[in-house]
Amino acid sequence: MEISVEISKYPLADDYIPYIKDFIDRLNAVDGISVVTNTMSTQVFGDYDLVMDTLKTEIKRSWETFGRSIFVCKFIGRNLDPALNPHG
């Protein structure tokens, strides 16, 4: 099963850019998932188990490394990667 997840991360820190960048960089390092970023959110696409296992690991690592932050996520049970679905 394929999945799409839209994630917005809100670090509770004044210097928040490195916290967000680190999280996105770690997602980009995972083979088998596609990551698309923009100024509002990060979208992750791929196999359900791989995406969910990756998010479980990386959200926990983010909290352990950088402290408090808020993650807002939206999930859909379909791969909506624009690279695979250029017309929606």
Rank of each mutant, 00 (worst) to 15 (best):
K21I: 04
K21N: 10
K21A: 10
K21W: 03
I24Q: 12
D25T: 11
D25G: 07
D25A: 15
D25Q: 13
R26N: 15
R26W: 07
L27F: 09
L27S: 02
L27W: 05
N28V: 04
N28D: 04
N28F: 02
N28Y: 01
A29I: 07
A29M: 11
A29S: 15
V30G: 01
D31P: 03
D31N: 12
D31W: 03
D31A: 15
D31E: 14
G32N: 06
G32Y: 07
G32R: 06
G32W: 08
G32C: 11
I33G: 04
I33P: 08
I33S: 09
S34Y: 00
S34H: 03
V35D: 01
V35I: 12
V36W: 00
V36H: 00
T37F: 05
N38Y: 07
T39R: 14
M40F: 15
S41L: 13
T42M: 09
T42D: 03
T42N: 08
T42Q: 05
Q43S: 11
Q43R: 08
V44F: 00
V44T: 02
V44A: 01
V44P: 00
V44H: 00
F45H: 14
F45P: 02
F45A: 07
G46L: 04
G46K: 02
G46M: 03
G46N: 07
D47K: 06
D47G: 08
D47M: 09
Y48M: 07
D49S: 14
D49T: 13
D49R: 11
L50Y: 07
L50C: 09
V51M: 11
V51C: 12
M52I: 12
M52E: 06
D53K: 11
D53N: 15
D53P: 02
L55H: 04
K56E: 12
T57V: 06
T57R: 12
E58Q: 15
E58A: 10
E58S: 08
E58F: 15
E58K: 10
I59M: 15
K60I: 13
R61M: 14
R61W: 09
S62G: 15
E64C: 11
E64L: 14
E64M: 14
T65E: 12
F66N: 11
F66V: 02
F66K: 07
G67Y: 08
R68W: 08
S69M: 15
I70F: 09
I70D: 11
I70E: 13
F71N: 04
F71W: 06
F71I: 05
V72G: 12
C73W: 04
C73P: 03
C73I: 13
K74G: 05
F75L: 01
F75Y: 02
F75K: 01
I76G: 10
I76Q: 10
I76Y: 07
G77F: 06
G77P: 06
G77I: 04
G77M: 10
R78L: 13
N79L: 07
N79Q: 06
N79Y: 05
N79G: 07
L80W: 03
L80G: 03
L80H: 04
L80S: 03
D81V: 00
P82E: 05
A83E: 09
L84A: 12
L84G: 04
L84W: 01
N85T: 12
P86W: 05
P86R: 10
H87P: 03
H87Y: 13
H87A: 12
G88D: 01
G88I: 02
G88Y: 01
